[in-house]
């Protein structure tokens, strides 16, 4: 780990000010990605802005037909929150399967979504549920937010404040874990909402993406069988020592089927 300055602002405004003042600074919430990178000397920020003292970023609450989750909500909070369990049980279930106990006790939803690791869990829920990303400056639709591997619509110095999830009629999530890292090899988040059916695929490709054919099939017939016959193309999917693109493409269909079954 290289030396860096450490700041712990008490308000969102102070945090934004610190981040804007130093283009080589990094915000840190749970630190589940940044800390290992720092320890491996893969990242050399001049300063680290600890967001954990900012009240505006905290909390999980139901607001009408929306579930609003603050950026600093830890995975364990989402997994065990009565509000989340009641409104979107698939989201609580997803949170309960992220990483391991230690990760769930430290990692946050804001950190995961802002990092947009292709093998992370939450981006598929955000995209699949057509959530809105609330930042200190604006509101961003999920479809516009994720822009490929580790890339989002967030601008330098812009902070993710909360995520607003519309409460769906039904939703379900299934994933196959990478056998070594336990990140997602292929996952599918399916949701049936007033606005239609959405299917978001994570893990398999270089970024989370929607599966249009599956959405169409499910819109016509919401059942596991409806997606079981939809083949995902292997083109552009990830291929590594853990599995070929063909294997991941196959898993996408399997996981979509299981996600629909889980959604009921």
């Amino acid at each position: 780990m290289y030396d860096f300055e450490y700041h712990k602002p008490g308000s969102l405004a102070d945090a934004v000010k610190l981040l804007s003042a130093d283009p080589d600074s990094k915000p840190i919430s749970g630190g589940q990605t940044l800390l290992p990178a720092l320890k491996h000397r893969l990242n050399k920020p001049t300063s680290v802005i600890d967001l954990s003292g900012i009240a505006e970023l905290k909390g999980v609450r139901r607001e009408g037909d929306k579930l609003v989750i603050g950026a600093l909500a830890k995975h364990v909070e989402v997994a065990t929150s009565p509000e989340v369990k009641a409104a979107i049980p698939a989201l609580a279930q997803m949170a309960s399967t992220i990483g391991d106990t230690q990760v769930r006790n430290r990692g946050t939803i804001g950190g995961s979504v802002a990092n947009n690791d292709p093998a992370a869990d939450y981006p598929s829920a955000v995209l699949g549920l057509n959530a809105t990303i609330v930042t200190d400056k604006r509101r961003i639709a999920a479809d516009d937010f994720f822009q490929g591997m580790f890339t989002t619509a967030l601008e330098p110095g812009e902070l993710l404040v909360a995520i607003e999830f519309p409460v769906p009629e039904k939703a379900g999530y299934a994933k196959m874990r990478n056998p070594a890292s336990r990140y997602v090899m292929a996952g599918a988040f399916v949701a049936k909402t007033g606005g239609g059916v959405r299917v978001a695929i994570n893990g398999a490709g270089p970024g989370v993406f929607r599966q249009a054919e599956m959405e169409k099939a499910l819109a016509a017939n919401w059942s596991p069988d409806a997606v079981a016959g939809v083949k995902q193309s292997a083109d552009g999917l990830n291929s590594d020592i853990h599995g070929s693109a063909e294997y991941r493409a196959h898993l996408v269909t399997v996981m979509a089927k299981r996600a629909v079954a889980a959604a009921g």
């Binding site: 056998p179 070594a180 020592i241 853990h242």
Partner: peptide
């Protein structure tokens, strides 16, 4: 334990070595 053809150790951490 996997090396690529250039001799780089691909499975060099618990992220890739199960």
């Amino acid at each position: 334990c996997v090396y690529d053809s250039e001799g780089q150790l691909v499975s060099a951490s618990f992220m890739d070595y199960q």
